[in-house]
Design a protein around this nucleic acid. Structure first.
Lengths: 200, 200, 200, 200
DNA sequence: GATGAATGAGCTTTCATTCAT
DNA sequence: TATGAATGAAAGCTCATTCAT
């Protein structure tokens, strides 16, 4: 059934084009026409693959997050030692900055903002679950470290929230002003502070 | 004799109404009509006090930030000891959560997002300076602590960025899901971790 | 009853201010606020003297035409000989160009255009009568000249239309491009051509 | 396969509709909605063919003038003798009155007025060049007549201005009141007066 | 009488979505 | 299946007019 594969490919193609435009313009400022043009197709064709702009935006967001997730977990799954896994996590975050993904890092903010807005009206973007997922990943890692007596006992839920939060917060500052500090260096500092203070 | 109106007061009134609506809907989804309705006035009246939606948004942002700034600096300026001043800063952040200001904490995200978007087109919201200001305040505090031999020597620029970042990041997670953790507790944890790791 | 004089004076004052603004902006582009500002009074005061923008416009037009009419007839009424009276008419038209009235010559076009537009909707400006009046004045002059055997017999109705038309037409071209020719010279040419071709 | 539409034809269709509405209402009083309705299409469709109301107005003007120009030059280009050519010009002006174009003669005034207004702000309608063109055409004809010793030597620039002006002026009076005189007759009179007074 | 704050009808323009081809 | 011409709802903004003071 080559048709299906073809359809999927085209959908992906449109999604990529959409991410680029959503990224640089934001949800409201993005016109379906721009996405179509960016994808090299007709305006109407977009609607053959996505029911509405909202749906397209949603898909674009999850597609984007998937790529980041994959990039991160790829770096981690071969490693066994939980402390090293944690280090790998920080490293992965840093390495994303050297990948083509970094070009679209600005998107996150806009995707976030759209996710936070209209909470009651259309909670189309499930930021809650997304954060939950990340938090849980880190929390499990911390728990493992504690179980293996490598880290002191702490509130791993709160600590993982803090780690995710610090990463987010640093990125935001960096997005706002890329010259203010070296993001890699900042993430390294964060990593060392965290690990040093938890190590037994 | 013309009607005498306290223009400043009315402007403030409209601003408050605007903040509320911008907060819950975001810039693009906010209709001037809604702001007017929320303020209990006519649509045209808004334009008697603000030239455009953009200008109103900008004013709303700075008004909002001013209130937060005032709330924070009020708690700090009587204190002399820099370590205590730093503690006071964290405390102030926590206390905002108990003030009426917290109702509009969600706004920040949207204001941020709007400030980050269209960076080239209309940098109407100067997030860069805003972060700079906060960073500098903390950095000066850290420098003072070091000069007074209360803190070890560290890169205070990077460390202040980290502190601001962590606060931001925690708030974002909390905004997305207020049940995920107790923000006050999280901030306390952050404060202790930071101060403990810097204390001589 | 000094009050009444006062009122009339103020009405005139507003009218003058209105003419200036209508002249430079046209009817639709003229804001009541601008007229009020130009008159140095409050917006609402305009409505104490004129029921609506339409009425104000109408009054402004007639006021303006009156001034031109007065300027023209003033130059003519002492003269007895009809040929000389006709010459005086052309001279008067020329002399208006040296008077302060010329500053507002551009107005005519806009007043005209507004008079021509919306013929069915609101024939507020009676251009028809205005032209009729001018035509009749010239026609009577021509008739007198013929009766006195100074001019050959011609269709004086058509000829007067032609004279008025040529004057109008020259003025329009001159308003559009003041450098294209010297209006005084052009009117002189017109006068000579007309009188020469009619003289017995 | 997309719908195939003769875009040019449709643009012309909208233009015709626009001319009609602009003609009867003037620029400011014309609503895009009325033009769309008059063209039997949706409001938005107008914007598929013209970027703005201003652009539409401009196009309508030039379209209208083109038709008049074509009608005039068509009548002249086969004739060689300059005096006959001049006669043909007057005849063409007269004949326009019998063509469908005459229905929209009223437009000219409004187009003119709009062209004259806002001279500094947006000189979108180039009346200056338009008059220049007509003047030059007549002036060349007069020069030819003089060179061929058929006309006496006169200031052809001023005379051509006078001819154009008289035509304009007669038309304006006629537009304002169609019963006042027979325009054809008036133009004939003008033609005869002009040619008679110039003939050697 | 004089004022200008307040108003809302009404405008141009945008753009997601539909649908005939 | 792919298209883009057509659409009309919706939004920001203007300004003549009103009216409380």
């Amino acid at each position: 059934m080559p048709k299906i594969i073809d359809k999927k490919q085209k959908k992906q193609h449109i999604l990529k084009a959409a991410i680029e435009v959503f990224a640089s313009r934001g949800f409201k400022e993005t016109k379906i026409a721009s996405i179509a043009e960016n994808a090299g197709i007709g305006k109407g064709t977009v609607y053959e693959y996505f029911k509405s702009k909202d749906e397209l935006f949603q898909n674009a967001f999850y597609e984007f997050m998937d790529e980041i997730n994959t990039a991160i977990t790829d770096k981690m799954y071969t490693i066994v030692d939980p402390v090293e896994k944690l280090r790998a996590f920080f490293r992965a975050c840093t390495e994303i900055l050297d990948s083509p993904l970094s070009d679209f890092l600005d998107v996150i903010m806009d995707f976030w903002a759209e996710g936070i807005k209209n909470k009651e009206k259309k909670p189309q973007i499930d930021l809650k679950s997304m954060y939950e997922e990340y938090r849980l990943m880190i929390q499990n890692l911390l728990d493992d470290c504690i179980v293996e007596k490598k880290f002191i006992k702490v509130d791993t839920h709160l600590t993982s929230s803090l780690i995710i939060g610090a990463l987010d917060g640093l990125m935001i500052q960096w997005i706002v002003d890329k010259d203010v500090f070296d993001l890699k260096e900042a993430i390294s500092l964060l990593r060392d502070r965290i690990i040093d203070s938890l190590k037994i």
